[in-house]
Amino acid sequence: MENIIEIRHLQKYFGENEVLKDINFSVSKGEVVCIIGSSGSGKSTLLRCLNLLELPTTGEILYHGQNILEHDMSNAVYRAKMGMVFQQFNLFSNLSVLENCTVGQIKVLKRSAKEAKQTAMEYLELVGMSGFIDARPHQISGGQKQRVAIARALSMEPEALLFDEPTSALDPEMVGEVLKVMKSLAGSGLTMLVVTHEMAFARDVAHRVVFMDGGVIAEEDTPDVIFNNPKNERTRIFLKRILDN
């Protein structure tokens, strides 16, 4: 399988603090990868590095074999190909639901307003939010916001979608609706990278699970191995703590 992204020897410092220590990692087309680990293990930072929201201190990020940190490609062009869904939704609060999904298409992809609307409607339909196109972000619930955020990212028709703890800020009763959408997306062949605390989702949906601990990838394998037969002691402790709760 062709690699969409490959990371080599990635390091990230926040001041003196080494958050990511020599990460090597790749994602191939159509793959669903879940990144798990306790808070502060560096999983969100890794995801944010992939979208250049954080710039790695050293290392390479290869996008189809090209190192994007060497400026052959502008950050903006690359970012448009990596969709991102945030824990806090971050819907544009000055725009309606529909405009949230069209603004990027019109301004970045230079699509016509009509074409942008068509695409946006298609994805809003997909996440079950096409009825709310005129609503403003503050008028809809958390789960609905996150579904719109997913539609916004999909409207850009990215090569991969990065999810940064997409359900962590949601009321428990709204987690389900978002996970359901994500599950369908995974089933449709979209390349997804999901930082999550939803172990059931990781077990059922991921092709590969990455366990991070203290800024390194401690273990990565199929969900079956990670959840039923982890090789690393730290993975075992983490999962026991999580699953016992």
């Binding site: 929201l53 970012r79 969709g83 544009f92 990027g104 955020a149 916004r152 990212a153």
Partner: peptide
């Protein structure tokens, strides 16, 4: 909110 900037950057603005 910083998230507004990040979300805009994330879609390539």
């Amino acid at each position: 909110d910083k998230g507004q900037f990040e979300a805009a950057h994330a879609i390539g603005m």
